[in-house]
Lab assay of single mutants.
Amino acid sequence: IGSLMYASIFGNVSAIIQRLYSGTARYHTQMLRVREFIRFHQIPNPLRQRLEEYFQHAWSYTNGIDMNAVLKGFPECLQADICLHLNRSLLQHCKPFRGATKGCLRALAMKFKTTHAPPGDTLVHAGDLLTALYFISRGSIEILRGDVVVAILGKNDIFGEPLNLYARPGKSNGDVRALTYCDLHKIHRDDLLEVLDMYPEFSDHFWSSLEITFNLRDTNMIPGSPGSTELEGGFSRQRKRKLSFRRRTDKDTEQPGEVSALGPGRAGAGPSSRGRPGGPWGESPSSGPSSPESSEDEGPGRSSSPLRLVPFSSPRPPGEPPGGEPLMEDCEKSSDTCNPLSGAFSGVSNIFSFWGDSRGRQYQELPRCPAPTPSLLNIPLSSPGRRPRGDVESRLDALQRQLNRLETRLSADMATVLQLLQRQMTLVPPAYSAVTTPGPGPTSTSPLLPVSPLPTLTLDSLSQVSQFMACEELPPGAPELPQEGPTRRLSLPGQLGALTSQPLHRHGSDPG
């Protein structure tokens, strides 16, 4: 009997000691992992102490058991019943959930998450997105703005933001810190809205009876308010094209079509300037034949640059190039080494500058006005007194259609001029006259002087055409309008007829 009692007592005591040691061994194993994590990542002392304290409290609170892992091991129907039991206190005593059906309560219970916070733990920081609604079931918390405590909340209090009033989550206007050990039930806004969409009859009752104890939403960050730039940057990543407008005076608003859609830094370009900076079609017209890549860069430059609305530039004389043409100036200075066709295309550029300027006046029909002061630039669209967005969009579309028509007509005119030049060069190729044979009589004449090349004649003739079109064909006081194609086609051969009437002889060394 004594040996039996000794064996039973010894066996029970050893089993008890073994169970104690097993729990202690698990605790030390998990604690060792936490300390190894702290050492590996070199976490500083204040945060390291918070980690160790939280682990110790969580171990004593749950005995080292992962409740979520245990809950996920059950089937979904059983999980709903378990969640309904775990959140029964909240669902029974909170006013917004009263009167809900059994199915609605089960769906809500599945969406709730339980959070346990030790003292000093910050649940929400200032500036964080308010993605959830919090219900306090135990403990107390404090809300701070800077170093000032603005509120202390306790059991059955609710904090967050009214989700039904805002389409997008706002930002917190303060820090939420736990004063004691707290148990909180939180539900994400997407989950709550999903359940309320499934039960629309409960939705009206819920929003009407929901009383948020403390609204954390920062009202200064609401979209459309003066301080909402940061919020707009976070939620409006896919922005449309940006529009900046110059201020319109009362006198300017009476004149229709007073602005032109141009790229940034293009205030001095012609009315047909689009795409790359520098001139019509993204580059100076005089350098068009020598740089074919300008047409390839036109599309990307047009689509990537934001639109700006600026006044037209001052008018340019008909014979003056659009500006920024070092290529043609070098050719004029060193005409001995340049291609003979460069002079002809220089005359073509003069005609283009004249036609572009006159067509700009035809479509816009307003006098040039000086540029406004820099303080009046970049007025935002949302400022008071601005035109409605639809009106601005319609004006932009009208300007775009005008620019497209202008570009089409300029292309047709350019093709006409090039065809005339090619026809003239085919009839009378460039050549130098040879020395004529002296006559049989004693009164022999001296050799004839060489005839100037055709490109120079073409430049003079085209300059005469531009001056003739600019000065004589337009009646005084009438708006400057571009001439039609047949009129220009008839004027060019008439001007060139006198020049080509002389018999030109080919030089023996000319390969053409």
Rank of each mutant, 00 (worst) to 15 (best):
477 G>W: 15
173 N>G: 10
464 Q>V: 06
375 S>Y: 10
417 V>N: 04
233 G>M: 09
476 P>F: 06
237 R>D: 11
509 S>Y: 04
383 S>L: 15
443 T>R: 15
137 S>C: 04
235 F>S: 12
318 P>V: 12
191 D>Y: 01
387 R>M: 12
381 L>A: 04
321 P>L: 15
335 S>R: 12
248 R>K: 11
133 L>V: 10
240 K>R: 10
384 P>E: 04
234 G>R: 09
410 L>K: 04
500 T>Y: 12
260 S>A: 10
400 Q>T: 04
157 D>S: 05
425 M>Y: 11
211 E>D: 09
219 T>D: 13
140 S>W: 08
456 T>Q: 12
232 E>F: 08
227 G>Q: 11
214 F>Q: 03
203 S>Y: 09
313 S>H: 06
364 Q>I: 05
172 S>P: 03
352 F>L: 10
387 R>E: 09
509 S>I: 07
210 L>G: 02
267 A>I: 08
223 P>S: 09
456 T>W: 05
449 L>R: 13
248 R>I: 10
424 Q>V: 07
419 Q>L: 04
220 N>W: 10
184 L>F: 11
402 Q>M: 14
434 A>H: 10
214 F>V: 07
344 A>E: 10
353 S>F: 01
160 G>S: 02
386 R>Q: 10
509 S>V: 10
140 S>R: 11
470 A>Q: 08
254 E>T: 08
142 E>P: 01
329 E>L: 05
153 L>C: 03
136 I>P: 03
308 R>Q: 11
261 A>Q: 09
143 I>C: 04
510 D>E: 08
500 T>G: 07
363 Y>S: 12
302 R>V: 08
186 K>E: 11
159 F>M: 05
477 G>C: 07
361 R>P: 08
399 L>W: 13
132 A>G: 12
285 P>E: 13
305 S>P: 08
366 L>S: 08
127 G>P: 01
328 M>R: 14
130 L>N: 04
446 S>I: 11
212 I>K: 03
139 G>R: 01
142 E>N: 04
418 L>A: 09
178 A>F: 02
199 Y>F: 09
421 L>E: 06
259 V>E: 13
229 T>K: 11
260 S>M: 05
416 T>P: 04
364 Q>H: 08
438 P>S: 09
155 K>E: 06
506 R>L: 13
237 R>C: 10
452 S>N: 13
262 L>Q: 15
303 S>D: 09
509 S>K: 10
226 P>T: 10
272 S>R: 04
456 T>E: 10
387 R>L: 13
322 P>T: 04
217 R>F: 01
219 T>E: 07
178 A>M: 04
345 F>C: 14
244 S>N: 11
396 L>T: 05
169 P>M: 05
325 E>Y: 08
222 I>E: 12
287 S>V: 08
327 L>K: 15
316 R>Y: 12
202 F>I: 08
253 T>K: 11
255 Q>R: 12
394 S>M: 12
136 I>D: 01
418 L>W: 01
457 L>H: 08
427 L>W: 15
199 Y>H: 11
237 R>E: 11
380 P>F: 03
292 P>N: 04
317 P>T: 13
437 T>E: 12
506 R>A: 13
364 Q>F: 13
250 D>R: 10
375 S>G: 11
237 R>S: 08
366 L>F: 05
286 S>N: 10
358 S>R: 09
435 V>S: 11
347 G>I: 11
450 P>E: 12
269 A>W: 08
297 D>T: 05
172 S>V: 01
317 P>G: 08
433 S>R: 08
446 S>A: 09
270 G>K: 07
255 Q>Y: 12
409 R>P: 02
461 S>L: 06
411 S>P: 04
240 K>V: 11
479 P>R: 08
328 M>Y: 10
384 P>C: 04
174 G>V: 10
245 F>W: 12
493 P>D: 11
159 F>S: 02
145 R>G: 02
380 P>R: 06
187 I>T: 01
227 G>L: 13
357 D>I: 07
256 P>S: 11
191 D>E: 08
302 R>L: 09
178 A>S: 10
401 R>C: 05
405 R>C: 12
444 S>I: 11
249 T>D: 07
497 G>T: 11
324 G>M: 06
146 G>W: 01
201 E>N: 07
409 R>V: 10
354 F>Y: 07
403 L>Y: 04
327 L>V: 03
312 F>C: 06
234 G>M: 10
425 M>P: 10
412 A>N: 04
246 R>K: 13
131 T>P: 04
469 M>K: 06
196 L>Q: 03
282 G>L: 11
334 S>I: 13
208 S>T: 12
150 V>P: 01
330 D>V: 11
216 L>Q: 01
266 R>K: 11
179 L>E: 02
142 E>F: 01
148 V>Q: 09
459 L>Q: 11
159 F>C: 01
187 I>F: 01
268 G>H: 10
154 G>S: 09
142 E>V: 05
430 P>C: 12
351 I>G: 09
149 V>F: 01
171 K>L: 10
246 R>N: 14
432 Y>N: 13
363 Y>H: 09
169 P>G: 03
494 G>Q: 14
312 F>Y: 11
324 G>W: 04
446 S>T: 11
438 P>I: 11
504 L>H: 05
251 K>W: 14
302 R>G: 11
152 I>C: 03
207 W>N: 04
351 I>C: 08
221 M>W: 04
198 M>K: 10
500 T>L: 05
195 V>T: 08
